[in-house]
Design a protein around this nucleic acid. Sequence first.
DNA 1: TCAATCAGGACCGATGCAGTCCTGATAATG
DNA 2: CATTATCAGGACTGCATCGGTCCTGATTGA
Lengths: 152, 152
Amino acid sequence: MLRLSKLTDYAVVVLVRLAGMEGVQTSPGIAAATGIPEPTVAKVLKTLAASDLVSSQRGAKGGYRLNRPLADLPIADVIAAVDGPIALTACVEGSATGCESQGLCPMRGRWDPVNDAIHKALTRITLADMQTAPRPAFRAPAGRASLQPAAE
Amino acid sequence: MLRLSKLTDYAVVVLVRLAGMEGVQTSPGIAAATGIPEPTVAKVLKTLAASDLVSSQRGAKGGYRLNRPLADLPIADVIAAVDGPIALTACVEGSATGCESQGLCPMRGRWDPVNDAIHKALTRITLADMQTAPRPAFRAPAGRASLQPAAE
DNA sequence: TCAATCAGGACCGATGCAGTCCTGATAATG
DNA sequence: CATTATCAGGACTGCATCGGTCCTGATTGA
């Protein structure tokens, strides 16, 4: 459980890749570099652009560019951009009309502290933290420099 | 996203209900008290029993009983019992054979710190915390003793 | 022996996600 | 100005998972 979508995982990979270059990068280019299928990369990029995590340049010589440095990009933002707001139950966030059995459910709103704790934890961790995580990509392919292992 | 299953929500409701009584309680009884359909309650109880969160007494006059007080029951345990281990991606937990593009994925294992943070946050919060959460069910008229079998 | 209750599945429908594709808008270039 | 490369924003489908129900035993008290 608590499984987040693959798209979010892809988004992190794409963003890290995007951070490694100065100019704009195209969807096919990123797809080739990361091994993620091109349509999927395009979809992820569009989603990230909609949330202002990346900027897009249309037309020929266009592409995408990272808006903020990785160290300033909490993973919570990425998850929120791709997977929607971070909420643990369907019964959360002032959806007064969502829960079908409001009168019966004795736990209404009880998940709020849990959600808050998770949100805080996810806001603390940035993509830079994930980039320098202990595990150093044991078989990094060509085109991507091997990351230095960093003790936590 | 990060949505946990309804079953987990039900489990919390059931456990809180279970904590309110001394002796054993039957599935139909809990179903009537909480408004959750009886088969679903039975399923939740069986799952919780499999994880030793509750004890069961078979036969006539049987039922379920809570094993530990709510204050000693972190929400992480409930989630793990109902929804399986807490892990954010499919790429996690030593599944060296799971990821189809190991060589390409530069983020292998990068989610570990995130998972760890979430697990810690979830372990800190117990069911007692959720029971006494700030928000007291803003529209539950009769507290928790609604016996209507969810006409919806 | 009989009835009540849990155990442990199988089973089906609905929901949501992953992934692909299509059509248009924009901008550089010859 | 025409062409081409690229993003924008959908719709669409197949698949997996989950929610929920039900059935057949095993156990135990009366």
